[in-house]
Protein backbone atom coordinates (compact mmCIF):
# COMPACT_ATOMS: atom_id res chain seq x y z
CA UNK A 1 0.00 0.00 0.00
CA UNK A 2 2.77 2.47 0.93
CA UNK A 3 4.71 2.19 -2.28
CA UNK A 4 7.27 4.81 -3.19
CA UNK A 5 4.89 6.84 -5.31
CA UNK A 6 2.22 7.15 -2.66
CA UNK A 7 4.83 7.99 -0.05
CA UNK A 8 6.31 10.70 -2.23
CA UNK A 9 2.93 12.34 -2.70
CA UNK A 10 2.15 12.00 1.01
CA UNK A 11 5.46 13.66 1.89
CA UNK A 12 4.81 16.55 -0.48
CA UNK A 13 1.26 16.99 0.78
CA UNK A 14 2.52 16.99 4.37
CA UNK A 15 5.15 19.64 3.57
CA UNK A 16 2.63 21.86 1.79
CA UNK A 17 0.08 21.44 4.58
CA UNK A 18 2.79 22.82 6.90
CA UNK A 19 3.49 25.67 4.48
CA UNK A 20 -0.17 26.59 4.07
CA UNK A 21 -0.79 26.48 7.84
CA UNK A 22 2.28 28.63 8.47
CA UNK A 23 1.22 31.23 5.90
CA UNK A 24 -2.25 31.19 7.47
CA UNK A 25 -0.78 32.63 10.68
CA UNK A 26 0.40 35.64 8.73
CA UNK A 27 -2.55 36.07 6.36
CA UNK A 28 -5.44 34.57 8.29
CA UNK A 29 -4.53 35.60 11.83
CA UNK A 30 -2.63 38.86 11.36
CA UNK A 31 -4.22 39.92 8.06
CA UNK A 32 -0.86 40.58 6.41
CA UNK A 33 -1.14 39.33 2.84
CA UNK A 34 2.18 37.95 1.71
CA UNK A 35 3.14 36.84 -1.78
CA UNK A 36 6.64 35.91 -0.66
CA UNK A 37 6.14 32.82 1.47
CA UNK A 38 8.25 30.64 -0.83
CA UNK A 39 11.22 32.81 0.19
CA UNK A 40 10.92 31.54 3.78
CA UNK A 41 10.43 27.99 2.48
CA UNK A 42 13.67 28.47 0.51
CA UNK A 43 15.63 30.08 3.34
CA UNK A 44 14.78 27.06 5.52
CA UNK A 45 15.80 24.62 2.79
CA UNK A 46 19.10 26.42 2.10
CA UNK A 47 19.92 26.84 5.79
CA UNK A 48 19.50 23.13 6.31
CA UNK A 49 21.51 22.36 3.15
CA UNK A 50 24.37 24.65 4.20
CA UNK A 51 24.41 23.29 7.74
CA UNK A 52 24.57 19.67 6.63
CA UNK A 53 26.62 19.81 3.41
CA UNK A 54 28.96 22.77 4.09
CA UNK A 55 29.35 22.32 7.84
CA UNK A 56 28.76 18.58 8.19
CA UNK A 57 26.04 18.88 10.79
CA UNK A 58 23.25 16.35 11.22
CA UNK A 59 19.77 16.71 9.74
CA UNK A 60 18.40 17.53 13.17
CA UNK A 61 20.83 20.43 13.63
CA UNK A 62 19.94 21.57 10.11
CA UNK A 63 16.21 21.45 10.90
CA UNK A 64 16.65 23.42 14.11
CA UNK A 65 18.85 26.00 12.40
CA UNK A 66 16.35 26.28 9.53
CA UNK A 67 13.53 27.05 11.97
CA UNK A 68 15.57 29.54 14.01
CA UNK A 69 17.31 31.38 11.18
CA UNK A 70 14.19 31.60 9.01
CA UNK A 71 12.30 32.93 12.03
CA UNK A 72 14.90 35.66 12.54
CA UNK A 73 15.00 36.52 8.83
CA UNK A 74 11.19 36.54 8.87
CA UNK A 75 11.16 39.09 11.68
CA UNK A 76 13.56 41.30 9.70
CA UNK A 77 11.71 40.91 6.40
CA UNK A 78 8.51 41.71 8.27
CA UNK A 79 9.75 45.24 8.92
CA UNK A 80 8.27 46.63 5.67
CA UNK A 81 4.83 45.62 7.00
CA UNK A 82 5.23 48.30 9.66
CA UNK A 83 5.42 50.99 6.99
CA UNK A 84 3.23 49.75 4.17
CA UNK A 85 -0.21 48.20 4.17
CA UNK A 86 -2.39 46.02 2.00
CA UNK A 87 -1.56 46.12 -1.71
CA UNK A 88 1.81 47.77 -1.09
CA UNK A 89 2.73 45.02 1.35
CA UNK A 90 1.81 42.43 -1.30
CA UNK A 91 4.27 44.13 -3.68
CA UNK A 92 6.96 44.38 -0.99
CA UNK A 93 6.72 40.67 -0.09
CA UNK A 94 6.83 39.80 -3.81
CA UNK A 95 10.01 41.83 -4.10
CA UNK A 96 11.52 40.02 -1.13
CA UNK A 97 10.83 36.70 -2.85
CA UNK A 98 12.68 37.78 -6.01
CA UNK A 99 15.64 39.10 -4.02
CA UNK A 100 15.98 35.91 -1.97
CA UNK A 101 15.90 33.71 -5.09
CA UNK A 102 18.49 35.98 -6.74
CA UNK A 103 20.78 35.64 -3.72
CA UNK A 104 20.56 31.84 -3.94
CA UNK A 105 21.24 32.04 -7.64
CA UNK A 106 24.15 34.48 -7.77
CA UNK A 107 26.01 33.97 -4.49
CA UNK A 108 28.59 31.22 -4.88
CA UNK A 109 28.29 30.14 -1.27
CA UNK A 110 24.76 28.91 -2.07
CA UNK A 111 25.94 26.99 -5.13
CA UNK A 112 24.47 29.35 -7.71
CA UNK A 113 22.15 27.85 -10.31
CA UNK A 114 23.69 24.42 -9.60
CA UNK A 115 22.26 24.52 -6.10
CA UNK A 116 23.51 22.36 -3.26
CA UNK A 117 23.40 18.59 -3.70
CA UNK A 118 23.97 15.41 -1.70
CA UNK A 119 22.03 16.39 1.36
CA UNK A 120 22.10 13.62 3.96
CA UNK A 121 18.93 11.83 5.01
CA UNK A 122 17.96 12.11 8.64
CA UNK A 123 18.81 9.20 10.85
CA UNK A 124 18.15 8.45 14.46
CA UNK A 125 19.97 5.75 16.46
CA UNK A 126 21.43 4.39 13.22
CA UNK A 127 18.05 4.09 11.46
CA UNK A 128 17.93 6.06 8.19
CA UNK A 129 14.69 7.81 7.23
CA UNK A 130 15.50 8.24 3.53
CA UNK A 131 12.57 7.93 1.17
CA UNK A 132 10.67 5.58 3.41
CA UNK A 133 7.44 5.52 5.32
CA UNK A 134 9.43 6.73 8.32
CA UNK A 135 10.25 9.98 6.54
CA UNK A 136 6.59 10.41 5.68
CA UNK A 137 5.69 9.89 9.34
CA UNK A 138 8.29 12.49 10.32
CA UNK A 139 6.89 15.03 7.83
CA UNK A 140 3.35 14.51 9.09
CA UNK A 141 4.56 14.74 12.67
CA UNK A 142 5.92 18.16 11.71
CA UNK A 143 2.62 19.11 10.03
CA UNK A 144 0.90 18.10 13.27
CA UNK A 145 3.33 20.30 15.21
CA UNK A 146 2.55 23.27 12.95
CA UNK A 147 -1.17 22.59 13.43
CA UNK A 148 -0.72 22.43 17.21
CA UNK A 149 1.16 25.75 17.27
CA UNK A 150 -1.49 27.37 15.04
CA UNK A 151 -4.28 26.10 17.26
CA UNK A 152 -2.61 27.08 20.51
CA UNK A 153 -1.61 30.51 19.20
CA UNK A 154 -5.27 31.24 18.41
CA UNK A 155 -6.11 30.63 22.07
CA UNK A 156 -3.46 32.97 23.49
CA UNK A 157 -3.48 36.72 24.10
CA UNK A 158 -1.20 37.02 21.08
CA UNK A 159 -3.82 35.23 18.97
CA UNK A 160 -6.48 37.68 20.13
CA UNK A 161 -4.11 40.60 19.55
CA UNK A 162 -3.39 39.38 15.97
CA UNK A 163 -7.14 39.31 15.35
CA UNK A 164 -7.44 42.91 16.48
CA UNK A 165 -4.53 43.94 14.22
CA UNK A 166 -6.16 42.20 11.25
CA UNK A 167 -9.55 43.86 11.80
CA UNK A 168 -8.56 47.43 12.73
CA UNK A 169 -5.07 48.63 13.59
CA UNK A 170 -6.27 51.84 15.27
CA UNK A 171 -8.76 49.99 17.48
CA UNK A 172 -6.03 47.43 18.26
CA UNK A 173 -3.72 50.22 19.45
CA UNK A 174 -6.60 51.69 21.47
CA UNK A 175 -6.81 48.49 23.57
CA UNK A 176 -3.06 48.49 24.19
CA UNK A 177 -1.86 46.22 21.37
CA UNK A 178 1.48 47.30 19.94
CA UNK A 179 0.67 46.77 16.27
CA UNK A 180 4.34 46.61 15.12
CA UNK A 181 5.27 44.07 17.81
CA UNK A 182 2.48 41.67 16.90
CA UNK A 183 3.04 41.97 13.16
CA UNK A 184 6.67 41.02 13.71
CA UNK A 185 5.58 38.10 15.91
CA UNK A 186 3.34 36.88 13.09
CA UNK A 187 6.10 37.21 10.48
CA UNK A 188 8.64 35.45 12.71
CA UNK A 189 6.38 32.52 13.68
CA UNK A 190 5.03 32.10 10.16
CA UNK A 191 8.52 32.20 8.65
CA UNK A 192 10.05 29.86 11.24
CA UNK A 193 7.42 27.20 10.58
CA UNK A 194 7.85 27.57 6.79
CA UNK A 195 11.61 27.26 7.32
CA UNK A 196 11.12 23.90 9.01
CA UNK A 197 9.03 22.74 6.05
CA UNK A 198 11.90 23.84 3.79
CA UNK A 199 14.31 21.63 5.70
CA UNK A 200 12.02 18.61 5.31
CA UNK A 201 11.69 19.31 1.60
CA UNK A 202 15.44 19.72 1.05
CA UNK A 203 16.37 16.48 2.77
CA UNK A 204 13.64 14.53 1.02
CA UNK A 205 14.77 15.63 -2.44
CA UNK A 206 18.42 15.54 -1.40
CA UNK A 207 19.26 18.80 -3.18
CA UNK A 208 18.17 22.44 -3.35
CA UNK A 209 17.88 24.71 -6.40
CA UNK A 210 16.88 28.40 -6.42
CA UNK A 211 13.94 28.13 -8.79
CA UNK A 212 12.03 25.74 -6.52
CA UNK A 213 11.40 28.72 -4.25
CA UNK A 214 10.37 31.18 -6.93
CA UNK A 215 7.46 33.60 -6.80
CA UNK A 216 5.02 31.16 -8.47
CA UNK A 217 5.39 28.86 -5.48
CA UNK A 218 4.31 31.73 -3.22
CA UNK A 219 1.16 32.07 -5.31
CA UNK A 220 0.54 28.34 -5.03
CA UNK A 221 0.82 28.42 -1.21
CA UNK A 222 -1.41 31.48 -0.93
CA UNK A 223 -3.94 29.77 -3.24
CA UNK A 224 -4.08 26.79 -0.90
CA UNK A 225 -4.83 29.04 2.07
CA UNK A 226 -7.46 31.10 0.27
CA UNK A 227 -9.16 28.26 -1.61
CA UNK A 228 -9.35 26.16 1.56
CA UNK A 229 -10.56 28.91 3.86
CA UNK A 230 -8.31 31.64 5.23
CA UNK A 231 -8.14 32.08 9.01
CA UNK A 232 -9.46 28.60 9.86
CA UNK A 233 -7.29 25.56 10.59
CA UNK A 234 -9.22 23.10 8.42
CA UNK A 235 -9.12 25.42 5.39
CA UNK A 236 -5.37 25.58 4.68
CA UNK A 237 -5.03 21.84 5.42
CA UNK A 238 -7.80 21.02 2.98
CA UNK A 239 -6.52 23.52 0.41
CA UNK A 240 -3.00 22.07 0.52
CA UNK A 241 -4.23 18.48 0.25
CA UNK A 242 -6.54 19.41 -2.63
CA UNK A 243 -4.13 21.49 -4.69
CA UNK A 244 -1.06 19.35 -4.02
CA UNK A 245 -2.67 15.98 -4.74
CA UNK A 246 -5.13 16.95 -7.48
CA UNK A 247 -2.44 17.22 -10.19
CA UNK A 248 -1.54 13.60 -9.44
CA UNK A 249 -5.08 12.48 -10.18
CA UNK A 250 -5.41 14.88 -13.08
CA UNK A 251 -2.16 14.11 -14.82
CA UNK A 252 -3.28 15.74 -18.06
CA UNK A 253 -3.71 19.04 -16.20
CA UNK A 254 -0.14 19.07 -14.81
CA UNK A 255 1.11 21.60 -17.35
CA UNK A 256 -1.79 23.92 -16.64
CA UNK A 257 -1.33 23.80 -12.88
CA UNK A 258 -0.86 27.54 -12.43
CA UNK A 259 -3.59 28.36 -14.91
CA UNK A 260 -5.94 26.30 -12.78
CA UNK A 261 -4.70 27.88 -9.53
CA UNK A 262 -5.23 31.33 -11.02
CA UNK A 263 -8.71 30.52 -12.33
CA UNK A 264 -9.67 28.96 -9.00
CA UNK A 265 -8.45 32.04 -7.14
CA UNK A 266 -10.57 34.34 -9.30
CA UNK A 267 -13.65 32.11 -8.88
CA UNK A 268 -13.15 31.90 -5.12
CA UNK A 269 -12.80 35.67 -4.80
CA UNK A 270 -16.02 36.11 -6.77
CA UNK A 271 -18.20 33.43 -5.21
CA UNK A 272 -16.67 32.12 -1.98
CA UNK A 273 -14.24 34.69 -0.58
CA UNK A 274 -14.13 32.87 2.75
CA UNK A 275 -12.83 29.71 1.01
CA UNK A 276 -14.33 26.27 0.34
CA UNK A 277 -14.37 25.44 4.06
CA UNK A 278 -14.73 28.98 5.45
CA UNK A 279 -17.26 29.54 8.21
CA UNK A 280 -20.07 30.66 5.89
CA UNK A 281 -19.16 28.67 2.77
CA UNK A 282 -21.65 26.39 0.99
CA UNK A 283 -19.65 23.25 1.69
CA UNK A 284 -19.12 23.96 5.39
CA UNK A 285 -22.74 24.95 5.97
CA UNK A 286 -23.90 21.85 4.12
CA UNK A 287 -21.53 19.68 6.14
CA UNK A 288 -22.76 21.20 9.36
CA UNK A 289 -26.36 20.51 8.37
CA UNK A 290 -25.61 16.87 7.58
CA UNK A 291 -23.59 16.33 10.75
CA UNK A 292 -25.74 18.62 12.83
CA UNK A 293 -25.98 16.38 15.88
CA UNK A 294 -22.27 15.83 16.46
CA UNK A 295 -21.58 19.47 15.63
CA UNK A 296 -24.21 20.64 18.12
CA UNK A 297 -22.85 18.44 20.89
CA UNK A 298 -19.32 19.71 20.20
CA UNK A 299 -20.50 23.28 20.53
CA UNK A 300 -22.19 22.43 23.81
CA UNK A 301 -18.93 20.94 24.99
CA UNK A 302 -17.05 24.05 24.03
CA UNK A 303 -19.51 26.26 25.85
CA UNK A 304 -19.32 24.28 29.07
Amino acid sequence: MFNGYVITIAVFVGIWVSLALSLNILVGYAGQISLGHAAFFGIGAYTSAVMTVRYGQSFWAGLLAAILITGIVGAILGLPSLRVRHDFLVLATMGVNFVVVAVFKYVDFFGGAMGIVNLPAPSLFGVSFRGGALYMALVWLYAGFVLLISWYLSKTWAGLALNTVRIDEDAAAAVGVSVPRFKIYAFAISAALAGGAGSFYAHFIGSVFPDTFAFVESIAILSMVIIGGVGTLRGPIFGAILLKSAPEFLRFAQDYRFTIYGALLVLMMLFQPSGLLGDDSWLWTLGKRIFRRPAASMQAEEAS
Binding site: L153, T156, W157, A158, L160, A161, N163, T164, I167, D168, D170, A171, A172, A174, V175, G176, V177, S178, R181, F182, Y185
Partner: peptide, 28 residues
Protein backbone atom coordinates in the same frame (compact mmCIF):
# COMPACT_ATOMS: atom_id res chain seq x y z
CA UNK B 1 -14.38 50.58 15.28
CA UNK B 2 -15.71 47.37 16.80
CA UNK B 3 -13.82 44.15 16.06
CA UNK B 4 -16.70 43.05 13.84
CA UNK B 5 -15.98 39.33 13.36
CA UNK B 6 -15.16 38.85 17.04
CA UNK B 7 -17.90 38.26 19.58
CA UNK B 8 -18.95 41.02 21.96
CA UNK B 9 -17.27 39.05 24.74
CA UNK B 10 -14.00 38.81 22.78
CA UNK B 11 -14.12 42.54 22.06
CA UNK B 12 -14.16 43.18 25.80
CA UNK B 13 -11.50 40.52 26.43
CA UNK B 14 -9.24 42.32 23.96
CA UNK B 15 -9.20 45.28 26.33
CA UNK B 16 -8.67 43.09 29.40
CA UNK B 17 -5.46 41.83 27.79
CA UNK B 18 -3.93 45.31 27.86
CA UNK B 19 -1.42 44.57 30.65
CA UNK B 20 -0.35 41.25 29.07
CA UNK B 21 0.36 42.39 25.48
CA UNK B 22 3.82 43.91 26.15
CA UNK B 23 5.19 40.76 27.78
CA UNK B 24 6.25 37.46 26.22
CA UNK B 25 3.48 35.84 28.28
CA UNK B 26 1.10 36.99 25.56
CA UNK B 27 2.49 34.20 23.36
CA UNK B 28 1.87 31.45 25.88
Amino acid sequence: KPFGDLSVLENVLSGIGMPVYPSARALF
